[in-house]
Amino acid sequence: MHNRRKELYRNILLYSIYALVIIFFLFPVLWALSLSFRSLKDVFRYPPHLIPSHFTFENYTTVFNTSLIKTYLINSSIYVLFTVIGTIILSVPAAYAFSRMRNKAKGPLLIIILAFQMISPLIIAIPIYGYFQQLHLLNNYLGVIIAYIAIQLPFATWLMKGYFDTIPISIEEAARIDGCTRFQSLIRVVLPLSLPGLATALIFTVIQSWGQFLIPFILLSNSRLFPITLGLYQYQVSESIHTNFIASASIISIIPAILIFLILQKFIVKSLTRGAVKG
């Protein structure tokens, strides 16, 4: 009897913790969501109330029709798409080679790549601004994409290398004896077994590139090329923009990231918990 009551208390305690955690993590976004469905009058009504007195979608249509947000969303999609393609094409062969080679230089090279992954992009962005100015890559789609790929490459290479390490060489040997080239055995044997790792690299590249701010902030001044993060930042800096518009624009920019996350959550949780991601 005594034990059962103790168990009950413990469960109640746990549920209370869960409730607090959920409130802390969902409340800020829900508040922005709530503001995004209000008229301006409703936004400033005092005392503030949690639920809009009447829901309106007008802010969303206004933001879509009067701001460059459509352009920003398209730009972000372009940057993310080409960054993903470039990052995967470059990192997969390199990660595979790192995983299979035995040269003594491998260790130090990998440490250097790990260090690159962790240093602030700001440090390298200062000289890159100078390069790109000379190469006419400022205010240029290609310039942004190249810089994004350079930022994502160390992480993707490390992650994929870690995954390839878990696939035994013996599996490939049969294919090699059958006359497969290295490349064929990577594509036909190793890569199909590495799909969870590949999915993880892909998700991380998408989420991080979608949220990237510093690089476009430094490389772009033409608002027609802004990704959603920079567009939103400039949008909220301009004093004349109403709070309800800012709230709805924020919600619009969150939706793609949250959707990708919810759909592919399993992969993210799995790879984070198995320790494949070390940065």
Binding site: V29, G211, F213, L232, I258, I260
Partner: peptide, 14 residues
């Protein structure tokens, strides 16, 4: 997964 800029804006609203 929310972009840092958006986190800043959302907290500002709060």
């Amino acid at each position: 997964v929310i972009p840092g800029v958006v986190i800043g804006i959302v907290w500002k609203l709060l």
